[in-house]
Design a protein around this nucleic acid. Sequence first.
DNA 1: TGCCACACGTTATAGCATAACGCAATTGAT
DNA 2: ATCAATTGCGTTATGCTATAACGTGTGGCA
Lengths: 140, 140
Amino acid sequence: MNAPISPPALTKNQTLVFGVLSEAEAPVSAYTILDRLRDHGFRAPLQVYRALDKLLEFGMVHRLESLNAFVACAHRESQCCGAGHGHGTVAFAICESCGQVAEFHDHEVDHRLEGWARQKGFRPVKTAIEIRGLCSSCAA
Amino acid sequence: MNAPISPPALTKNQTLVFGVLSEAEAPVSAYTILDRLRDHGFRAPLQVYRALDKLLEFGMVHRLESLNAFVACAHRESQCCGAGHGHGTVAFAICESCGQVAEFHDHEVDHRLEGWARQKGFRPVKTAIEIRGLCSSCAA
DNA sequence: TGCCACACGTTATAGCATAACGCAATTGAT
DNA sequence: ATCAATTGCGTTATGCTATAACGTGTGGCA
Ligand SMILES: [Zn+2]
Ligand SMILES: [Zn+2]
Ligand SMILES: [Zn+2]
Ligand SMILES: [Zn+2]
């Protein structure tokens, strides 16, 4: 369910933006992406946001709501939630010290939230789960 | 666990901001709060943000990360997670049509996320769970 | 009295996101 | 081939969200 749209070939701008996110070790804000792509001709925020919109649509990128920043999807190859690379709701653990983000999926959590929604007649469209804290390295 | 700080008497600004949130039927942004309090002498965003910081600290208000907006806590009287009004991690279902927000708590979800964190050595500080979608009225 | 903690007020600035316009390339009928 | 519709692109301007930095005033307390 909720399978992301199949990714057609990326445009030049989409490729550049995805490249920045793939190489980053932490979430990156839209304006930081812009700065990193000035040498490639990027001049305005909309160039970034338009590429991000598509990448989000393709399921190749996630937005971290509590950070106003973006990450490349870390588990597109996972088979756990159905055919191919699609995935349902995913959770993020964000280290407030080093910035690293872990992306994971928990069926039971998904199931419980869906259960609540069904019971209340609420129709979910998109769910964000973000745990802020300290990663194992930084908590030591 | 994670019991909020006991709320001392609120200051004038804190009372005004909390009043706006209590009377609202949907999340309210900081700048909207500012506008609604101009007649009471509010002139600058910081007056709102400072009051909000305290109210968040007291556990009387929640921030919705995916909306950049705030709501009064809807279940301070609940006894479900320990003594008094304190609560652990809470989830929100946000209707994208009418704006209404439902606040709820699910032990099992909490437990699963804690389990993941323990297993990974991640030390959670604050967790956000926000389901965007359509409420029962709007989905009909 | 002097000190400290805290709330408050003000101005300025930083950071995040979209509206509105126009142009160019692509696609897919007719 | 030609027209229309779609999509991506570039630019300018604007709006929304959040904090930095400075100064004032007040109450508690050694
Ligand atoms: Zn992913
Ligand atoms: Zn870390
Ligand atoms: Zn609450
Ligand atoms: Zn609704």
